[in-house]
Amino acid sequence: MALQVEHELHERRKGRNYGVGIILVGFIAIVFGLTVVKVIQLGDAAKFERFDHVARPQIIPDEGAGE
């Protein structure tokens, strides 16, 4: 004979946990969606490398190459 009585406090917590889970999944979906839109909007993956805010000489065009 198991004593498995579920208190109404557990039901309220379960409801809150579901709500927090839904909000968390929604937030993750929004961030993922914005990332996908940004990458698609850039078009070329090489353009995406320029947004890392780090000075990298290999992506800076040569000044003397056009002459």
Rank of each mutant, 00 (worst) to 15 (best):
L3H: 10
E6A: 09
A46M: 11
G43K: 03
F32T: 06
T35N: 08
V20H: 08
G66P: 00
V20Q: 09
G64E: 08
V39F: 03
A2H: 10
D44C: 08
F48Y: 11
G19M: 13
G19E: 12
I59G: 03
V25Y: 00
V31K: 01
I60W: 06
R50Y: 10
V37K: 02
G64C: 04
E8M: 12
N17S: 13
I60N: 08
I30W: 12
D52F: 02
V5M: 06
F32C: 05
D52A: 03
L24W: 05
V39Q: 05
T35M: 10
L24C: 09
I40V: 14
A55N: 11
V54I: 15
G43C: 07
A29N: 02
L34I: 01
K47N: 15
G15N: 14
I30P: 00
A29E: 01
G43E: 02
R50M: 13
E8N: 14
P57N: 01
L42H: 00
A65R: 01
A45P: 00
V20C: 06
E11G: 04
F32Q: 02
L9G: 03
H7A: 15
F27T: 03
A46F: 11
I30L: 15
D62W: 05
D44F: 12
Y18K: 15
H10E: 12
G43Q: 04
G43T: 03
A29W: 00
I60F: 07
Y18F: 11
V31Q: 00
V36D: 07
F48L: 06
D44G: 00
E63R: 11
P57C: 03
L24T: 15
G64D: 04
M1H: 09
A45D: 00
H10K: 10
V25N: 00
I60Q: 15
L3Y: 09
K38F: 14
E63F: 08
G66T: 09
I59T: 10
I59F: 13
G26V: 04
V37C: 06
A2F: 13
V20L: 12
F27S: 01
L3P: 04
I40G: 01
G33S: 14
P61G: 02
F27K: 02
E49W: 10
A2L: 14
R16S: 08
H10P: 00
E63Q: 14
G26H: 07
L24F: 09
A29F: 00
I28R: 02
T35C: 12
G15E: 13
G64A: 10
V25C: 03
H53M: 12
E11D: 12
V39S: 05
A29I: 01
E63S: 14
A55R: 02
R13C: 09
R13M: 11
G64F: 06
V25D: 01
V54C: 05
V37Y: 15
R12Y: 07
I22N: 05
